[in-house]
């Protein structure tokens, strides 16, 4: 029996596009493209390790940009960020379809591969948009604004630009505690680094009073006669409440759940 071919890469975007290069170069037809870390071993599969090579990555990157479109390339990146378990193979099918139909490929809504990709793109970009609003900074004693997030998808790299424009004159950190990475901004540029824990936190003296003001505002702005918790939850799913100042029981300026 011929085994299913599985491509393994290092989990980076560069690695993923190197896989795409190799698929075309070797004329392979892998059934899965997956990050080494996510691998569950199976006897009916044959594994090929693909080493990330920057020039191969660049070739694929530039070719998608020029032969299909920049928007298409952005979707490929979002698919990668989704961390969907099938994202590798969805990317491959998406790119294959892209080369087939060229510049207009993204509009081919009835094509199953395009639609599958657009669906995931929509989820990632929705989550990004939600976090532009739901992210909460807290002012630390040293004047740095610090936010904790735990998004479903790996969106930290597509949040940084927004906040670097908006909060250009502040020092801030956005910390994805689920993936142990953070964006750091120093009033000039932002970088992403792996980051475990910030250690002992002390807030600026008036931080807690602004939190109380916000909670009071949040409570009083709701109209009782129109109470509609279901609608609220549909816009703001409860899994995102954990780090919201205005929801949940709090202790020392943090939600209780993340102290436990």
């Amino acid at each position: 029996m011929k085994k299913d071919l599985v491509y393994l890469y290092d989990g980076s975007f560069e690695g993923l596009l190197t896989c795409i290069y190799e698929v075309y170069y070797r004329r392979d037809d892998p059934k899965q493209i997956t990050s080494k870390e996510d691998l569950t071993f199976s006897l009916v599969e044959e594994y090929v390790h693909i080493d990330t090579e920057m020039d191969k990555f660049k070739k694929v990157y530039e070719s998608i940009e020029s032969k299909i479109s920049r928007e298409f390339l952005k979707t490929v990146f979002y698919l990668y960020l989704s961390e969907d378990k099938d994202s590798g193979i969805i990317v491959l099918n998406y790119i294959r379809t892209g080369y087939k139909y060229g510049k207009d490929a993204m509009n081919y809504q009835t094509n199953p591969y395009i639609r599958a990709a657009n669906e995931i793109y929509r989820k990632v970009s929705l989550e990004r948009h939600r976090f532009l609003g739901l992210l909460r900074f807290k002012m630390l004693e040293n004047g740095i604004l610090y936010a904790i997030i735990e998004p479903d998808h790996n969106i930290i790299s597509i949040l940084g630009g927004h906040f670097s424009q908006r909060m250009s004159n502040e020092y801030w950190i956005i910390h994805d505690v689920k993936r142990s990475i953070a964006v750091f901004y120093n009033k000039e540029q932002w970088i992403i680094k792996s980051f475990e824990s910030i250690g002992n936190i002390s807030f600026q003296e008036n931080e807690l009073s602004y939190q109380s003001l916000w909670k009071a505002y949040y409570k009083h702005i709701a109209i009782d006669n129109r109470k509609n918790i279901r609608q609220k939850k549909s816009y703001m799913p409860t899994r995102y409440w954990k780090h919201l100042v205005e929801e949940g029981v709090q202790k020392n300026g943090f939600n209780k759940t993340n102290l436990d």
């Binding site: 609003g133 424009q165 908006r166 509609n228």
Partner: peptide, 20 residues
């Protein structure tokens, strides 16, 4: 040196108990 900008699409920051 300023603070803030405005996004053409608008951004929601929370939802109150009436779902707004």
């Amino acid at each position: 040196g300023g603070l803030g900008n405005a996004q053409a699409a608008g951004i929601c920051h929370s939802w109150s108990d009436d779902g707004r």
